[in-house]
Simulated assay, not measured.
Amino acid sequence: MKCKSSVRWYDVTSCGYYKHGETAAPVFGDISSMLAELVHFAKGKKLAQTRLLGSDDTLGTYLAGISSHDGVYVISLWNQVSGDTSNAVKSLPEDALVGQAKAVKTKIAKGNIPGYPTYFVVLPAEGVVGTLKVRDNVPGLDAFKRYANEFLSTSTRQTVTKLAKGEVEILGYRQSKKDEIAKLHPRMVLQVRRDKDRAAYIRENAEKVRKVVRSRTLNVLANPSDFTLWQSFLKAVGMSSKHAGKHEMHVKHQVDVNNDAPAIIALVDEHEHTVVPKDNDFGFVFTGQSEPHWLSNALCNTSFEIDVPAVNGVFLASDLAVKIAAKKAAIIATL
């Protein structure tokens, strides 16, 4: 199945075990060693066993798969949802092995975890992590960062623990068994990779902006404020207040501006880290031009098509890794 895909890239600015109060360099660890630990952790485990020690979320995040090919890693997380047992939803069997779990779409059965997948591409040699969007899945960056930090804190071979009164106590961390246990701070931090020249261009030419275009995808069934806004758009054009029954509606609207550079710069500053092409974006039309300069273009994104099989809309990390690795050179050229 050919799928339109895109990756938003983030620089790995910290990854490993740090002395408290220090951020410059870890005592040990990096993104490559964290990936090696994840691969070791996942080997032979069932999906249910990958919910991490210390995770106090009511709904769990699970490691559905991790696979590498030619220096490209793909990580798949399964994000649990509170499913309605009367309706068919996607779920994974909790006793399926990591990397082999295939999604089913039925009424929730005992022993299945309802949820949705999120996918991440890691290029350790380039020091970047990307949120992979295949077709219509959500990026899920926050869950990835939370999982990675919990993993470094609780579940690597560098974590030293003991059982005390029926609970696991973390004593500290050491690079190898011959080293002394140290009180260190595990941390993985990502920072969005940007094309600084593009954002700077909008700021430097803010006084020339004559129109601001807002592009949004409204979740009209789940978000009351989005539903209200959608209804106001329909009313403004004289259409029925009933929507078409779709979960999401894409809207685009624009306003004229006149020599308001401070407001334009403030708009860029506020939203440059959160824009998403089409779904949540701002375009700026300059005097003498007709096409908008989209703020999302200031972020480092890579788009491509891959032909990859899916089961009930869910992809295996191993399949994704092979297909994305085939485009590795072209992807690195966009970074």
Rank of each mutant, 00 (worst) to 15 (best):
D195I: 13
V160C: 02
R203A: 00
M239P: 01
L184F: 09
A222R: 12
A222Q: 10
S225D: 15
K246P: 03
R198W: 11
E207D: 12
N223Q: 11
W230M: 10
A200T: 12
G166E: 01
V168A: 07
E207N: 08
L218K: 05
A206W: 00
F227A: 12
D179V: 01
W230C: 03
I170T: 09
K242D: 09
M239Y: 15
Q175D: 15
V160G: 03
D179Y: 02
E180R: 14
L171I: 09
G172Q: 05
L229S: 07
D226T: 04
N219Q: 10
E207P: 03
R214H: 10
S176M: 00
L218G: 04
E248Q: 11
Y173N: 04
K242L: 06
R193I: 09
H243D: 15
K196Y: 10
H247S: 14
A199L: 11
R193F: 01
G166T: 00
T159F: 01
R194A: 04
S215T: 06
V251I: 12
Q231P: 05
Q191S: 13
N219I: 02
Y173V: 02
I202S: 01
A182T: 04
M188A: 11
E169N: 03
S176N: 10
E204V: 04
E180N: 14
D179K: 01
E169K: 11
A182W: 02
K196E: 10
N223A: 13
A182F: 02
E169A: 09
V209W: 04
K242C: 03
S241A: 13
I170Y: 08
G245V: 00
D195P: 04
H247M: 13
S241H: 05
E248F: 14
V168R: 12
H250S: 11
S232A: 08
L163E: 13
K165M: 06
I181T: 10
R216T: 00
V209E: 03
V160W: 03
T217K: 07
G172I: 04
S232F: 04
R210D: 06
G238L: 06
N205D: 14
A244K: 10
K211G: 01
A182N: 05
N223D: 13
Y173K: 02
F233M: 12
P186V: 08
L234A: 13
F227N: 09
D179N: 05
N219G: 07
Y201T: 08
S240E: 14
R214V: 08
Y173T: 02
L218W: 00
L184Q: 03
K183W: 07
V212K: 04
L184K: 04
K235W: 05
V168K: 11
S232E: 08
I202V: 14
E204I: 03
Y201P: 07
H247R: 15
V189Y: 01
